[in-house]
């Protein structure tokens, strides 16, 4: 199975720009215009086509629903819960993934034995275990942290293993001629060269953690944004469902953006590649 790596949306670069700042302006103007167009079409299209607010409420109602939830405190409270679940699960997955991955990468024997089964486990939709986690740990935060950690663990694990193994032999040989110890080689050569791969896994894992938390809340919870969605749904408060969805989307973007920032800092030495190779996000 292919390594777990996120595919980055490629940027076109075209020569022959009239000038650089005009191009940058276009980068902002086009999406902004598209956004305005879509919102306008949504707002008036709904009224025009007579779509009921129980199906597709216009943006105005959705915004009002968000404002309502913000003012009565439920929005922030639920966001906090989901955030804690996500970050908690992510942290566990990160530590466990790196430790287990490092162990497996160190021993060729262990790797050969275990890797095939890791691949097999990856074909199992682990999210199907969400109900089990709720049964084990109850409706509280713990079960969601567990699901989030479970799902986020594997991309990190696989990428740590591949990253550590990807270190080119030349650099290791260099260290060996300096009589470097195993730990020194790991710290100064293996780990840094594995970092791009690990960060790619982390990129994927953060969104997976959020996904796990949400599905956990779908299945059984008393708080959280996913719970709020299901609750509002059952209470026929449809604009709230859309509103929470927007907030969730924003949360995902922020979390992912934070990881991207860290990634850029840690990997400032990597030359930006413009070629994308077929890779998968799993």
């Amino acid at each position: 199975m292919m390594a777990t790596l996120e595919l980055e949306l490629p940027r076109t670069s075209e020569p022959r720009r009239p000038s650089v700042w005009m191009a940058r302006l276009g980068d902002v103007a086009y999406p902004a215009a598209a956004l305005v167009l879509m919102l306008a079409a949504w707002e008036w299209g709904v009224a025009l086509l007579g779509i009921g607010a129980y199906l597709l409420p216009p943006p105005s109602l959705v915004v009002r629903a968000i404002a309502d939830m913000a003012s009565d405190g439920s929005l922030w409270a639920n966001t906090q819960v989901t955030l804690i679940e996500t970050l908690g699960g992510f942290a566990i997955a990160l530590v466990a993934g790196i430790v287990v991955g490092a162990l497996i990468a160190q021993s060729r024997l262990l790797e050969r034995t275990v890797y095939g089964y890791i691949v097999a486990i990856q074909t199992l939709p682990k999210i199907a275990l969400a109900p089990l986690f709720v049964a084990w740990f109850g409706f509280g935060l713990t079960s969601k942290v567990g699901v989030a950690a479970l799902i986020a663990f594997f991309p990190i694990l696989v990428n740590v293993i591949i990253g550590l193994k990807s270190c080119d032999v030349g650099k290791i040989d260099l260290m060996r001629t300096l009589s470097a110890s195993g730990w020194q080689i790991f710290r100064w050569v293996r780990l840094p060269s594995a970092l791009p791969y690990i960060m790619a896994g982390v990129d994927v894992a953060i969104v997976f953690a959020l996904t796990g938390a949400i599905v956990g809340e779908f299945v059984g919870a008393t708080a959280g944004l996913g719970y709020q969605m299901v609750l509002s749904n059952s209470q026929m408060e449809v604009p709230k469902v859309y509103g929470v969805l927007m907030v969730l989307g924003l949360l995902g973007v922020l979390l992912h953006g934070a990881v991207e920032l860290v990634r850029r800092r840690l990997l400032s030495w990597v030359p930006t590649d413009h070629h994308a190779s077929p890779s998968s996000s799993h």
Binding site: P15, R16, R17, P18, S19, V20
Partner: peptide, 8 residues
């Protein structure tokens, strides 16, 4: 002649 990326 052409304009390079740096607008020269």
């Amino acid at each position: 002649t052409y304009q390079s990326v740096a607008a020269e």
